[in-house]
Design a protein around this nucleic acid. Structure first.
Lengths: 327, 327
DNA sequence: CTGAAAGCGCTTACAG
DNA sequence: CTGAAAGCGCTTACAG
């Protein structure tokens, strides 16, 4: 049913190598061009991808490894990657690892075996196993959201994010502050974001911050927040992500603590939902979809053999809203 | 660098057809099995997917067409599909169409060209062009979230969802009601969900409902809600999705209308966020990830030639929370 | 500009 | 149980 290049060649009365040349933009005479074009149109011929890949030993596919699918950050990033890839005739293949690091490693090898042209890796943590995989496969890999000296990477300016938030909180007059962070294994969020914040606090002099650690889940954040409010009576709680901040708000509500009058709350991310809720959440906006686009763009350029910055940093943007009050 | 089946055959001292047979579970003598196994282990041999697919003319890939990536429903559904597929050694390929119908059609043909074994289609609207594409490609297609007599489908019980919500609203004493729905082109949400609701209202006798239409975007829902509150002073607004309900809440907050005391609000979907906000949103929970799993399961069975129900309906579940008050 | 031939890495009858 | 051969649908030097 599906025509092959031989069929087309025969129908057009030329050799299949000629058809192939035509297909790949090689030079053919005006005359044969027309003949071939007509037949291809007529039979709606499309080349078999496998046969092409088998010869070429590569594909127009970029693999993307994501830790989870149900997160605002991931969705937006994927949308950006997909758009940029699509407009450059690349395809995006997604491997979801459900936060399972072994699956992350497996995904890298799987992609290699499928001969993807490049891999964009959204990993929370970069281990030796990751590095080894990347080296073994010999395919361009771009780390997105984290950085590592041995890898090409594109990151959001987490230090700036933390710092701006810190400055803002201090300027609003808060002195008793709680910062609910995440594991240091996630360097971007767990370390850089927090360190930026700490730097601003250090400049304050009279500010007092207590640090807690929780996971990325809203539900766990509510539990941590409960503990915080038992220990402590801060005027301000900063969550290392919007989800954490949302969890804090939830806990405040259930304890009848009014936001922002009795407690100010802020987060990081700039998720859409943060401006829909009441009070609207003060946050630092990350440009996820732009990051995705840029990542795809770098990857394409790298594949084409063009020089690409080893490390790119994207600016972030503080968005003051209703959830932080003057103190 | 990468070994081929010929290399392995040579190293093991057998013919490549023997290696192939071994690889595909054909019978080989204990002796050769050991030899081959050793070499494969030693060189970490993995068969080339393209060569396999070129011969087999098919793959272990299921294509999934989604209208958007940044929606709770889509994410959860994809997670379900992915899990089920993975545990059956299938891979999921995602095509995001950004709500562009032409891209939906294109995606179907693209998938066919890549010889996916099946396609799971999450479309809001099924047109003649969709049906034609499905017939032309001759690959199993499963419609998820919508139904159509000419296609295999798996749907949530939208009628039940609407009906239960209607009953609940009536039972809570509401008589002046606004229902903000979506286009009828989306039969599941635009028609069935609303009709279930209408049925419950009709049983009420003394209830008055005004219908409005908006899009799936939260931001547009806020605008529609603004219009609603200008026209009308309902005691209850039901949004056809949680996002719409969230938009309504946003508008109520900005107009200093207290929920639920002055206005009750409810939605459909059961998004995670609905229980984090304050007041927590009354909604009907849809089992998206289970739907994804089931869809993948049906697809796999259909590919295996097993008989599969033409149409499957998943139950939904009303979750009363704080956003609806007695009237 | 054009065509015959070899080859990409696998699988599948077919003999033995 | 095992192997030689043909073929899947393309591309790529190489001649002409």
């Amino acid at each position: 049913m599906n025509k092959t290049i031989s069929d087309i060649a025969q129908l057009a009365g030329v050799a299949k190598s000629t058809v192939s040349r035509f297909l790949n933009g090689g030079s053919v005479s005006e005359d044969t061009r027309q003949k071939i074009e007509r037949i291809i149109k007529q039979y709606n011929y499309v080349p078999n991808t496998f046969a092409q890949s088998l010869k070429a030993k590569k594909t127009s596919i970029i693999g993307t490894v994501v830790p989870r699918l149900d997160s605002f950050a991931t969705s937006q990033t994927l949308i950006g990657i997909d758009e940029e890839l699509r407009s450059n005739h690349y395809q995006m293949l997604i491997a979801n690892t459900s936060q399972d690091m072994q699956r992350e490693i497996d995904a890298i090898y799987d992609f290699a075996r499928q001969k993807v042209s490049g891999i964009i890796l959204l990993a929370a943590e970069v281990t030796e196993a990751h590095l080894r995989a990347v080296e073994e496969i010999g395919i361009p890999v771009l780390l997105l959201g984290q950085q590592h000296e041995r890898l090409h990477s594109l990151v959001h300016n987490d230090d700036q994010a933390g710092y701006e938030m810190g400055r803002y909180v201090v300027a609003k007059g808060h002195r008793q502050i709680v910062y609910i962070g995440v594991t240091e294994k996630d360097q971007a969020v767990g370390i850089h974001r927090r360190q930026g914040f700490q730097r601003a606090i250090a400049e304050c002099g009279e500010c007092d911050v207590t640090y807690y650690e929780t996971s990325f889940k809203m539900s766990e954040a509510t539990v941590t927040a409960e503990a915080v409010l038992n220990d402590n009576r801060p005027t301000m709680i900063v969550g290392a992500t919007d989800n954490i901040a949302l969890g804090v708000m939830k806990t405040a509500f259930s304890n009848r603590i009014r936001i922002p009058h009795e407690l100010s709350v802020a987060g990081f991310g700039g998720y859409d939902i943060t401006e829909m809720i009441h009070p609207a959440l003060t946050t630092v906006k990350y440009h996820y979809s732009q990051a995705g686009k840029l990542a795809a763009n770098h990857m394409i350029r790298q594949i084409a053999g063009e020089p690409v910055e080893k490390r790119t940093v994207l600016d972030v943007e503080l968005i003051p809203r209703e959830s932080v009050d003057n103190q």
